[in-house]
Every structure is written in structure tokens, then in C-alpha cells.
């Protein structure tokens, strides 16, 4: 099985034998890979009970809960890394979750769809409608993505919340990257991948 490209990218950041918390871990593919390949000691959090059972069948540690309820059950600095892929834009209180993530993890790794990408800007500015793209395929009335933000928005939130940005990589829908995306991240990057920590 090949790892999804964004997961591949993140797994490069994660040191061997680290303690890792994966928020919205799905069927546990990232955790499973990191556990086997890197000796990571991992926990997952997942809201879908069928996916929780998938994780259990893989022998993973997984907690069935809604991320909206926060991470109160996890202690301060309990993990080396807290990872959340493509979920920040779907929770009702992203700022609280960000705060919780850098409390629970030494570092947090976060990915989200960049609403500042030229294609979404174009759809809104010229089309005059909420953008529907490969990254954001849902119509406005049924989208789970209720807290969309741009690269600049997110970095402003980090500043407000006293969160340091350690690294940023912009990628496209297929998780390919190039120098232009890094130079004009908010315009050319479709998906933002951040490594952050509490200041």
C-alpha cells in the first residue's frame, strides 16, 4: 500500500519512536504505517464508529470522540506530535482546537485547504458564487467545511494564539510541490501543510 502523498510528506517530519496523536485518524492508515515503519507510539481520535473499529482491527489505540469536545482527556505535552489532516476547517472552534493541539503536543502538524488559492478567488470574484473545486467539492449548504480560511488567515490566528510556525509547505491537490507555490503560497498553494508549536 502506498501512503497518501500528504501523509508521506508528514511522515518525513516525524522522528522515529515518537509519541503521536492523530486527530481525525480515519481508518488509521497513517498511524499504522508510522507504527510499523517508525516505531511510533500512536493514538488516534476518530468520530466515525465504523472507522474506530477499523483502527481497532489494525491493533491501534483509538479514542472514539468528537473533536468539538476538545482534548481535555489528554495531558499537557503528552505527545511529541499532534497531527490533524484536513479537519481544521470542519470543526466549529478551530482556534480552541489549535490551542489544545499545541498544549497536548510538543509540535502540531496541521493541513487544510487554502481558500486563498487563485481558483477559489476566481470562482468567487468572477463567478460570484461559492467555489466548488476538487479540494472543496461540496455546495455551500451541505459542506462540512464551515471554517474555511486562507494561508494569511491561519498565520494571523497563529500569531494571536502565540503559536510559532516552524515550517510551511504548500502543495497542490496531488500533493506535488514547486518553488512558485512556496513563493506565492496564498495564491498558488491548494493545500497548506504546517508544523507549529506553542511559543
Amino acid at each position: 500500500m502506498t501512503l497518501r502523498a500528504d501523509l508521506e510528506l508528514m511522515s518525513r517530519w516525524i522522528e522515529p519512536n515518537a509519541a503521536l496523536l492523530d486527530l481525525g485518524c480515519g481508518d488509521g492508515v497513517l498511524l499504522d504505517t508510522l507504527t510499523r515503519d517508525r516505531g511510533v507510539v500512536g493514538f488516534g481520535v476518530e468520530i466515525d464508529p465504523e472507522l474506530v473499529a477499523d483502527c481497532i482491527e489494525r491493533g491501534l489505540n483509538v479514542i472514539h470522540q468528537d473533536l468539538d469536545d476538545g482534548l481535555a482527556d489528554f495531558g499537557d505535552a503528552a505527545f511529541d506530535y499532534v497531527v490533524m489532516t484536513q479537519a481544521l476547517q470542519a470543526v466549529p472552534h478551530p482556534h480552541r482546537l489549535l490551542r489544545d493541539m499545541v498544549r497536548v503536543g510538543r509540535e502540531a502538524i496541521i493541513t487544510f485547504p487554502n481558500f486563498g488559492h487563485w481558483r477559489t478567488r476566481w470562482a468567487l470574484a468572477i463567478g460570484g458564487r461559492m467555489p466548488i473545486t476538487e479540494t472543496l467539492p461540496h455546495p455551500w449548504y451541505s459542506t462540512p467545511n464551515v471554517r474555511l480560511c486562507t494561508v494569511r488567515d491561519f498565520e494571523e490566528l497563529c500569531a494571536i494564539e502565540h503559536v510559532s510556525i516552524l515550517e510551511r509547505v504548500m502543495v497542490d491537490q496531488r500533493h506535488r510541490s514547486n518553488a512558485m507555490m512556496q513563493r506565492l503560497p496564498n495564491l498558488l498553494g491548494e493545500i497548506a501543510v504546517y508544523r507549529v508549536a506553542a511559543q
Binding site: 473499529a53 479514542i63 472514539h64
Partner: peptide, 21 residues
Amino acid sequence: SREIVRALLARKKRVSFLEIE
């Protein structure tokens, strides 16, 4: 049950939790 889970997590025990509808 979450009380048990929370206590186990506090001691970094290996635990999975599932709530069945």
C-alpha cells in the same frame, strides 16, 4: 466509561474506546 479512559490516558496506557449507538 470515559472516566476509565481518561484515567488510562493520563498514565499513557494503551487504550481504545468505542461508543456503540
